[in-house]
């Protein structure tokens, strides 16, 4: 805050040794077509060494301006209601050529990494730096429930299997009826020989399965019963 106060004094004269940073938000499709649609609460925060922090609200021309920065290494974060912005590192250092102006440099930085790990270079300027920052992603607040969808329901393998078997149950008699007699005889023979058919075959056993008896624990007698019915026939 101390630094900000000196601005008014300097306002009349030309800005001699002030380091200014201007961050603008350009149109960046497809995430943010029109930066003027950003909420007025959008703001940028520069966090310097302990105790030094600057905050700038977004301006009408889609920029954030930080006048008169002290020499330090800053973390720049932009907070917006609907978008995420990447964090930047901004360094304000004494100029190497000994002039009064300070050098402002900006890089991308990465959370969870050491501070010296710098990303892409955003730019450098003497006394003043203008950089552009683009949103990295849009905030999506809502979780949709896995609702009921008839197409998804039909697509599931269980339902597909059931549908196939239904088709067989209803379709088979028609196919059988439309078969020519010779083939039908052949098929019948095959069925009779098959392990599933016949009075003592698995199919018959399944069909005549005595649930009540089985539940009552008469495991062996069920088979007997099945055999009996077979004899009666």
């Amino acid at each position: 805050m101390l630094v900000l106060k000196s601005l008014a004094v300097l306002a009349g004269t030309s800005l001699a040794s002030a380091a200014n940073l201007t961050v603008s938000v350009p149109s960046s499709p497809p995430l943010l077509l029109n930066p003027s649609s950003l909420a007025p609460s959008t703001h940028a925060v520069l966090i310097g060494p302990p105790g030094i922090q600057y905050e700038a609200p977004i301006r009408r021309d889609n920029t954030f301006t930080f006048p008169d920065l002290a020499e330090a290494s800053y973390l720049l974060t932009v907070h917006s209601r609907d978008h995420f912005f990447p964090p930047l590192r901004v360094d304000v250092t004494k100029s190497v050529d000994g002039t009064q102006q300070e050098t402002v440099q900006a890089w991308q930085t990465f959370r969870g990494n050491e501070w010296s790990n710098k990303g892409p270079f955003y730019g450098s300027g003497n006394g003043e730096l203008r950089i552009q920052i683009q949103p990295s992603s849009q905030k999506n607040f809502y979780q949709d429930r896995g609702g009921f969808n008839i197409i998804d329901f039909v697509k599931s393998p269980m339902i597909l299997m059931a549908l196939v078997s239904v088709a067989f149950i209803f379709g088979m008699p028609y196919i059988m009826d439309n078969m020519d007699p010779e083939m039908k005889e052949e098929f019948d023979d095959m069925q009779k020989k098959g392990p599933l058919s016949g009075s003592s075959g698995a199919a018959a056993q399944l069909q005549n399965f005595d649930i009540a008896g089985w539940l009552a624990g008469k495991g062996s007698s069920t088979e007997q019963g099945a055999g009996d019915t077979g004899k009666k026939r």
Binding site: A11, P57, R59, R60
Partner: peptide, 9 residues
């Protein structure tokens, strides 16, 4: 949105 701001002494 902010248009301009000035700090006084």
């Amino acid at each position: 949105r902010l248009v301009w701001n000035v700090h006084t002494d």
